[in-house]
């Protein structure tokens, strides 16, 4: 039987990355980092309800030490890049793995969220790019002029535009779906599954997904309703 022997020169991390399981492990770890960021970011956002001063101070605090800011940003960027890179490769693999499709295939055991990761992911990426251009870089200014130090103003002005809010809400719903699957699936990918604990993880993932989405969505909704001005 023909066998291929991978020699000692073969680079182990490269081989790990080359396997589907390795990629999923990387996606799990990077996903976990992004998940933590999403929680932290949401908690930061909620300070908008404590008034402009508090939020602007917080924004200022984040920018106070550029080295730390860029260190954190680097980790996030690397995570995003690896997460996407792995998922794109898995998606390519998926199409190759079934060159002739079914006339029809029913899903009987999986969640909607798990099957739509390849959808929710790219849309979230588009959202993140837009979001950075809007509220970090200020390149897009849908709600009037971007004021670098006045986070509160930028947020409120932006969300007063209905389609900005709608796009934001839509994206956060997708984020909830993404988390609802990702937050338990990452444990599975690194090898943790237990008949007693995994159901709890799944429920926890759902609860956190709802909480996170609700937390984020509360901001544009409040702006639109005029609670935050």
């Amino acid at each position: 039987m023909a066998t291929t022997v991978l020699g000692a020169r073969d680079v182990r991390p490269a081989r790990f990355w080359a396997s589907t399981n390795g990629k999923k492990a990387v996606m799990a770890v990077t996903g976990a980092i992004l998940f933590l960021f999403v929680i932290g970011h949401m908690l930061g956002n909620l300070q908008i309800f404590e008034g402009p001063e508090k939020l602007n101070d917080y924004g200022h605090f984040l920018h106070s030490v550029p080295e730390i800011l860029w260190a954190v940003r680097s980790v996030l960027i690397v995570s995003v890049v690896l997460h996407i890179w792995a998922s794109v490769q898995l998606a390519v693999r998926k199409t190759k793995a079934r060159p002739v499709g079914y006339s029809h295939r029913d899903n009987i055991a999986s969640s909607y969220a798990s099957r739509t990761m390849y959808w929710s992911g790219p849309i979230l990426l588009a959202f993140v790019i837009y979001h950075l251009l809007h509220l970090t870089a200020g390149v897009i200014q849908p709600g009037g002029e971007f004021v670098p130090a006045d986070v509160y103003h930028n947020v409120v002005a932006g969300f007063q535009v209905w389609y900005v809010s709608a796009w934001y809400v839509f994206s956060m719903v997708l984020l909830a779906f993404h988390i609802r699957h990702g937050a338990w699936s990452m444990f599975q990918s690194v090898g943790f599954n237990h008949p007693r604990h995994t159901p709890i993880l799944k429920k926890g993932a759902l609860a956190l997904a709802i909480l996170i989405a609700a937390g984020y969505i509360s901001v544009p909704v409040s702006v639109m309703l005029g609670v935050v001005k």
Binding site: K24, A97, S110, S114, S189
Partner: peptide, 22 residues
């Protein structure tokens, strides 16, 4: 076994769970 599974051209698992359902 993982190396062989990958070499065969199967897709990667994304923890969907249809497999165990059927």
């Amino acid at each position: 076994m993982v190396a062989q599974m990958n070499a065969e051209g199967f897709g990667g698992c994304t923890n969907i769970g249809e497999c165990t359902g059927v």
